[in-house]
Design a protein around this nucleic acid. Structure first.
Lengths: 328, 328
DNA sequence: CTGAAAGCGCTTACAG
DNA sequence: CTGAAAGCGCTTACAG
């Protein structure tokens, strides 16, 4: 039924060794090569990967650990990674942790057990346990979305993006701003975006800023925005993610106010939906697809022992839409 | 370094066969069992899956073929599938075809080559080539989203959902309706939803209906809606998917009209964002997460040779929001 | 209830 | 340039 390397060897009149050598780019005479290729074409032979992996003690799997699957950013990254891996005959393996950090660590070990050739970690936080696991398993790894001095990282330019976006809203005349962020365990989103924002407002004059913390869930953003709207009535709510911004916009409308006439809103992330909703959401766009491609490229280089940049800072674009009103 | 079954056998003072038998639930004396378990606990031994798979000529992989990764519905389904598979010690393998039908067929063969234990196909269309592939590879398969008499399927109740949603908008007083659908190669979305809609409007009186076809892409929906709005000015646009509805809403606003005051809109799918945007989108919700779980359960049953229902029709809910105006 | 042996399909020194 | 042989780590009849 299914052909093995012995069948091919027999049909081509050579030994298994020679077939294997041909497949793996070793020295084979021209005649042998031709006969083997001919037989492979006729039979459609494909090597058994389990046997290969067993022998070689590695695999062509690359594990990707993600915090959630139903996220636009994650999906775009995975598409980029997957395309690049496919081109290079690697296969993507996904471990979805559903925002559970223990599962991230477990996934590191279980990927090691499955002998993946490399790992890409879409990180939220790098704890001690993460580091122990990464150091123990000794598998090439690339960390995305968070910076860590010990490892190879690809990060977004959260600080400068937040700084530039904040400058823009200040230029638009906003002074009374509510910043709606996330907890600081997430360094990129919780700390850096806030820091960039702070830098800009510190450079402004007569600013009246309040800071609030919510979660990544839309529902929580809705609740938090409701109280912000009632208590403070800022002219703009600066949201640390697009999801938070969507929740905030919903909350503004349900309070019978208008965006941007009554309250302006900005987000962070560049979701496609942010462009479709009305009014368009002013936000920061990161090129997730591209960073996924780079991650795929780099993990392969790392596996091959080639040089890669230890830290890659991905670029961003400020998307200016109608959700920010110009104040006089 | 890494322990093998021989190491465990030596440490426990038994043979490899006995260790293997214990691991696979065969007859082992109580004393042997205890010693083996003890050693496994101490060493943290985990069997090498490549060796197991090589020997058993199968794997614990289950392949899932998806048309795209950046879709809310797909993501929810994958979450459901993944959870269920994990619970049962299966591992999900994803093949993203980027809407390319040839890749679907290729993926069937390549999954077969990887000796997956089962396949779940999120189908858009079942062509001859699909059937040939499915029949050739002889691997348990479940098809989701499209119905086919030869295979085990899980489908959404597109016909009745569209019928009920259409009845609702007719009850709300709409008579001049533009139906914005997709091509008929997609039986579930292109044919069944339209048929359900038609049945309802045929039962209505003095209906003035126009039919239009667009793609699944938001951009195309925007363009098509622009011309519908200019040429016909219907009181409601009935969209075959939520993405199309989002595009339509954007188009309405950019024509300086209001939803629902000037034109009402309904969608199909129950995206989370449909609830967040303002006004809320009236739509049909399918429980994607749950159908994913069922697909996971059923593929495992199929692999074990257990009985499953040949056709499962998943339920739906009509979500009534503000995007539909009540006409007098 | 247990162990020795064969074999899954491949790769890789090794000797020629 | 080529082939015989060993071995990757596991499972499973088979004989005891």
């Amino acid at each position: 039924m299914k052909q093995t390397i012995s069948d091919i060897a027999k049909l081509a009149g050579v030994s298994k060794s020679t077939v294997s050598r041909h497949l793996n780019g070793g020295y084979v005479s021209v005649e042998a090569k031709e006969r083997i290729e001919q037989v492979i074409k006729e039979t459609g032979y494909e090597p058994n990967t389990f046997a290969q992996n067993l022998k070689l003690k590695t695999s062509n799997f690359i594990g990707v650990i993600i915090p959630r699957l139903d996220s636009y950013a994650t999906a775009r990254i995975l598409i980029g990674v997957d395309e690049k891996l496919k081109q290079n005959n690697y296969q993507m393996l996904i471990a979805n942790t559903s925002q559970n950090k223990d599962r991230e660590v477990e996934s590191l070990y279980s990927f090691a057990n499955q002998k993946v050739a490399g790992i890409i970690l879409l990180a939220t936080e790098i704890t001690e346990k993460h580091q122990t696991a990464i150091d123990n398993i000794k598998i090439p790894i690339i960390i995305m979305g968070q910076e860590h001095c010990k490892y190879n990282c690809i990060v977004y330019d959260d600080f400068n993006a937040a700084y530039e976006l904040a400058q823009y809203v200040i230029d638009m005349g906003h002074k009374k701003i509510a910043y709606l962020g996330v907890p600081e365990y997430d360094v990129s989103v919780g700390v850096k975006r806030k820091a960039g924002f702070k830098k800009a407002v510190n450079e402004g004059r007569n600013m009246d800023i309040s800071y609030h913390v919510t979660s990544f869930a839309i529902e929580d953003a809705v609740n938090m925005s409701n109280s912000i709207i009632k208590d403070e009535k800022p002219s703009l709510i600066f949201c640390a993610t697009d999801n938070i911004a969507l929740g905030t916009i919903g909350s503004i409308y349900s309070n019978h106010l208008q965006v941007p006439a009554d309250i302006s809103v900005v987000g962070f992330g560049g979701y496609k939906v942010s462009e479709i909703i009305y009014p368009g959401l002013t936000t920061v766009r990161f090129d997730y697809n591209n960073t996924g491609t780079i991650a795929g490229e780099n993990i392969i280089k790392l596996i091959k022992g080639e040089f890669i940049n230890k830290l890659i800072i991905s670029n961003y674009q400020i998307i200016k839409k109608k959700s920010v009103d110009k104040l006089e």
